[in-house]
């Protein structure tokens, strides 16, 4: 464990908590893509099946349980409890265009052709594109609540910090996992234009609104 990975995990946890609290406190999921949240729940489920079979550390296990719990709680709030506030018309990204190619790629390119390893690879590839429905929804509505932009910033920052963690592990532990690195770089690149808007607008106190 290194400071970059720990900060990354805490940034990821912050993002998950921010979103859950935003929906719970405002009793509304306006502007939130339910599809992205379903994809994240799938990412955590397929990646953390090893919860049942292997124990790495208390930190590792507890974080996995928290991530899975929060992900399903968020999906529940969006599609059940506050479904009246769910903006289905703008959450129209065709996720099958993500899940099918990612599933195929996971079967073709992986470290080991075993059930758990292919699911892990699927989860890594899926996570790199899981935010697309959310970014697509913001581009359609042309704006995002400030709290949502903080959620997205923490979420994007987490994988950017993981890239630094992988650089660190390469030099100090001679460890690298090319599948995670390539997917992580793609994932972080997808946030770049959002990062630009976040820094130039939200941090200056303006509302995030895209040129319509």
């Amino acid at each position: 464990m290194n400071i970059f990975r720990l900060t990354g995990d805490l940034s990821h946890l912050a993002a998950i908590i921010i979103l859950l609290l935003k929906i719970w406190k405002t009793r509304s999921c306006a502007g939130i893509s339910g599809k992205s949240q379903i994809l994240f729940a799938i990412v955590f489920t397929t990646r953390y099946l090893d919860l049942l079979s292997s124990f790495i550390s208390l930190y590792n296990t507890s974080m996995k349980v928290i991530y899975i719990g929060c992900a399903y709680a968020t999906v529940y709030l969006i599609y059940m409890k506050f479904r009246a506030t769910y903006d289905g018309n703008h959450d129209s990204f065709r996720v099958e265009f993500l899940v099918v190619p990612v599933g195929g790629l996971a079967v073709l390119i992986n470290h080991d052709f075993s059930f758990l390893e292919i699911l892990w690879t699927f989860s890594i590839y899926l996570e790199s594109v899981a935010i697309l429905p959310q970014l697509f929804m913001i581009s359609k509505t042309g704006e995002a609540e400030t709290i949502t932009t903080h959620y997205l910033f923490c979420l994007g920052l987490y994988r950017a910090l993981y890239i630094v963690n992988w650089i660190w592990r390469y030099y100090f532990e001679a460890f690298f996992d090319l599948i995670a690195i390539v997917a992580g770089v793609v994932q972080t690149i997808l946030y770049c234009d959002f990062f630009y808007l976040y820094v130039t607008k939200v941090l200056k106190g303006k509302k995030l609104s895209l040129p319509a």
Partner: peptide, 10 residues
């Protein structure tokens, strides 16, 4: 048997 990855990252 080939060493299978023990993924220690979240």
């Amino acid at each position: 048997r080939e060493f299978v990855f023990q993924h220690d990252e979240l």
